[in-house]
Amino acid sequence: MSTIEVYEPAMCCSTGVCGPDVPQDLVSFSADLDWLRGQGTEVARHNLAGEPSRFTEQPAVLAFMQVSGSEGLPLVLVDGVIAMTGRYPSRDELARWAGVTARPALAVLPMAGAAGGCCGGGGSC
């Protein structure tokens, strides 16, 4: 089974409570992790503010931090290899890395005219 670790930017509280808004992607991501846990796969989360030494122990993460800094976070490490940066993974992506089958996801079709167009919100098409 693959080891999935997520390195997150410094947040006073990982709930994002200290910001003026609670980011929706954090909310969805937490729900996806709960689901994955239900499938028997644990994902470790590391917050830069709480345990920065975690970020320097992994050569791949350290190199990334030196080049990109926390603005490039979050970073997803799968078996020590950088699998994704700059956004939180979707449930499907997590499932693929973990080697479990995602439950049929609700089809989310891009809406014409929505803010940002077809691929709004930083998602990849």
Binding site: M11, C12, C13, S14, V17, A44, R45, N47, G50, E51
Partner: peptide
């Protein structure tokens, strides 16, 4: 060390 716990800033 696997925390999804919240106010760990101060407790870390």
């Amino acid at each position: 060390g696997k925390g999804d716990a919240s106010c760990l800033g101060p407790l870390a």
